[in-house]
Simulated assay, not measured.
Amino acid sequence: MPLIEMLPVGADTAQWDVWGTVARVVVTDPAGTDEAAAIVADELAAVDLACSRFRDDSELRAASRSGGRPVMLTDVAADLVRAALTAARETGGAVDPTVGAALCGLGYDRDFAALTGREVAPAVRVFPKPDWRAVRLRGRELTVPDGVLLDLGATAKAVAADRAAAKVAARWETGVLVALGGDIATAGPGPEGGWRVLVQDRPGDPACTVRLPAGAALATSSTASRTWGRRGELLHHIIDPATGRPAPRVWRTVSVAAFSCLRANTLSTAAVVRGHDAPTLLGGTPSRLVTPALEVLRIGGWPQ
């Protein structure tokens, strides 16, 4: 996952574990570190309550249990669902929020921290075929077809990073970087020379240092992280909606730079799903793709 390699002069940082990953907040004004961390933590708590599929009291779980009846969402939950449906539309369904049941069928039915090290027994279950077009969001009114379980894991973390960074910058008028695992968002004035970020999924993997200008974002999607065992196979969390199975490991990681973390994450996830068609999908977007053999493909002006 991307790491902040070097802090700008005068910057300070805070970090803690959340959602099976690490949240990290870096601000250019050290006086704002504690309050910035509190703002980010509050935002993550609101997102978790809105859309976690591992909480019985989340709005998303309630909508999925509504039997196909419309439910009213809070503004936070509506924004998160809207972002997920936008990602689905922009990727032709490669990033689909209706894959929740497929993930549960594969054993990813609890927070990833609780899943790690646990072998999942195969199960024969029948789920509705993922199809984001069956979900209806009108304003804050959400209708989820009966039997469909929404999972916003492909977009919610990126939206949370964007929202949290924007809130910190507005409150302190400072430069801020919010990293949630492989999702990085920045806001406010950046440090001189930009935010310096080391992109590397795991120790021993190819590494690359990039400089993000103020307001830029970076997302990395990986088939090597968030994996778990099921008898006879190793699974990962990026689902191909066409099959309901983990996407083939054409790419070990895909990193994309954009001017929102949501956009970067949408493209990096879709690229993993599209496999060999990923370079066409990404076009001129700055991207770095790593194969299982650790060969690196750079497109769109990604630096060497």
Results as ranks from 00 to 15, higher is better:
60 L>R: 11
302 W>I: 02
205 D>H: 13
204 G>M: 02
101 A>C: 01
195 W>N: 04
183 D>A: 08
184 I>K: 06
102 A>C: 14
92 G>W: 05
277 D>F: 02
141 E>F: 00
96 D>V: 08
292 P>H: 12
98 T>S: 15
246 P>V: 02
154 A>F: 00
270 A>D: 06
68 G>E: 11
270 A>G: 08
102 A>W: 02
92 G>Y: 06
185 A>S: 12
25 V>Y: 13
99 V>H: 00
35 E>W: 06
299 I>F: 01
146 D>T: 07
10 G>Y: 00
150 L>W: 00
87 A>W: 01
112 F>L: 15
34 D>Q: 12
15 Q>C: 09
41 A>S: 15
67 G>A: 06
62 A>M: 12
54 F>W: 14
74 T>K: 06
59 E>C: 12
275 G>I: 01
56 D>S: 14
233 E>H: 07
106 L>P: 05
128 P>A: 12
18 V>K: 11
181 G>D: 04
17 D>M: 11
168 V>N: 04
123 A>G: 14
89 R>C: 04
143 T>Y: 01
74 T>Q: 03
4 I>K: 03
77 A>S: 13
128 P>K: 11
96 D>E: 10
274 R>A: 07
19 W>S: 12
2 P>T: 04
291 T>N: 08
80 L>G: 08
285 T>K: 04
115 L>D: 09
172 W>G: 12
213 P>L: 12
125 R>T: 15
96 D>M: 10
71 V>N: 08
203 P>L: 08
139 G>S: 10
144 V>I: 02
201 D>R: 10
25 V>Q: 13
254 V>P: 00
129 K>F: 10
48 D>S: 14
256 V>T: 05
254 V>M: 01
264 A>T: 02
74 T>I: 04
41 A>D: 14
21 T>E: 06
137 L>N: 05
113 A>V: 13
34 D>F: 01
100 G>Y: 03
150 L>D: 00
284 G>S: 13
110 R>P: 03
241 P>E: 10
